[in-house]
Amino acid sequence: MHAKKHFHLWEHFRRRERKAATDGRAVTLGALPAGKTATVAELQGGRGFTTRMAALGFTPGAQVTMIQNFGRGPVIVMVRGTRIALGRGEAEHVWISANGGEAHEES
């Protein structure tokens, strides 16, 4: 859709990601722009949240692709072949790492 804007967001994301690697901070799913794929690194939150998300397939190492992310409000992600809607708060509790090298682009 807005390929240019997405590219920009993606660059921003990668920069933050790189920075995170050096200063020990990481990036959450909420920062992943639409169309990009990343790897789940860690879930952070209560036990109820973790068990539910884990059952849906958000386990460390799983690939997640952002389908819709407008920066505010809920997001839609694709994980293990299904579309899951997550509240902004929930997306912020999923820590991700960028896929190694050039992330393969989806959609």
């Binding site: 109820g48 949240f49 539910r52 998300m53 579309r83 809607a85 708060g89």
Partner: peptide, 11 residues
Amino acid sequence: EHVAFIMELPL
């Protein structure tokens, strides 16, 4: 209380 929103979107 904060309530988590996690919902599947079917095909």
